[in-house]
Design a protein around this nucleic acid. Sequence first.
DNA 1: GACGTAAATGAATCTCGGTTCTAGAACGTT
DNA 2: AACGTTCTAGAACCGAGATTCATTTACGTC
Lengths: 201, 201
Amino acid sequence: MPRPAKFTDEEVLDAALSCVSDDGAGVTMADVAARLGGPVGSIYHRFASRDELLARLWIRTVRDFQAGLFALAETYEGDPERILVDSALHVPRYCREHPDRARALSLFRQPVLLASAPEGVRDDVASLNDGIDRLARRLTRAHYGSASAAHVELVLLATRIAPYGLVRPYVGAPVPPVIDQATRASAEAILSLEPSGRRRR
Amino acid sequence: MPRPAKFTDEEVLDAALSCVSDDGAGVTMADVAARLGGPVGSIYHRFASRDELLARLWIRTVRDFQAGLFALAETYEGDPERILVDSALHVPRYCREHPDRARALSLFRQPVLLASAPEGVRDDVASLNDGIDRLARRLTRAHYGSASAAHVELVLLATRIAPYGLVRPYVGAPVPPVIDQATRASAEAILSLEPSGRRRR
DNA sequence: GACGTAAATGAATCTCGGTTCTAGAACGTT
DNA sequence: AACGTTCTAGAACCGAGATTCATTTACGTC
């Protein structure tokens, strides 16, 4: 009965992704509309504001990134250290294969967005890490024999923060192979720490 | 003969630093003027534009950060590995002691600023890393016995990129001690790599 | 004490870009 | 074919904030 939609939400997000890939956080609604091949009004028909559009783009991208991690975790069931190191390596791999999405990932950080996100997406942002946090706890227990906050933090540093820190300067450009080597070395070293700072075993 | 200056460049930069510490890259000229206790016009009297003001603030902060590295390098002359690991640890230390300056450091990255910097500061940005690069090459040669581009890159990853990546999520908040442990572990691990990816020795 | 200079001052202007709003179009239904 | 609904369309609106500029101030010199 209604007029058929010419653009889907996903297409708008794709256009936004493409713009973000070029201009980073400086995207304008006019840019996105031009990329989409439509007027700005059509975008506002689906997204309440620029903030919401960018937040949704970020959320979609984070979910896509996390999907790779979940898939990975099922591959080597029973070898937690291997899963953890591979999770770390997933970061440079993902950024190399999807430079545009990598750029979108660096649009926000969860705690910051949680504070400033528009009403409609707040909840999605809040629950975004639930699944991945559960996985992290499970792997932490398997690796360390404990899932204390301090142990989980080490795992997070080794698999997420350090790897992302290493690729970040290369986001927007080709990620050289040495980053993967450094990521592996760094992850293994951090995973060999105890929260006290001593080496394990 | 002229009217005496009420504000110095440094005071304006201090006010800008203070604002950046609160609002990050979102500072407005009005914010800075309010913090300074003067009108916006006075700021434009010394800084041609907002871009220039922020660029100069960033440059001043980077120089301050680098000064610590230079001082450090003279301390343990003859023990390159110790200097390198300590250089890595300088990053979380600096960010913990100077949270406001840490925030200012994350305002730009050199290659990006180099492309977009206003005329007057372009040269300063371009030469900003000259000294530190020389130091890095010297220490790379001392540590690896070679200062090939690949070796220098490893040193850069170990002492600058990985450490900064580890603290970055904490910039704007207290930096926990575990970051220092992770930084040390990560730096040592990366410095034990050869460009081929193999372990040294 | 008038003059020249450099600085301060802050209201007015300009610009950019997000957002709104009214009109028109496309479709199924009755 | 008239209608209801949902979407496209894009020009107009509007606010935020950077920048400008005419004026005033404070000082040393002649």
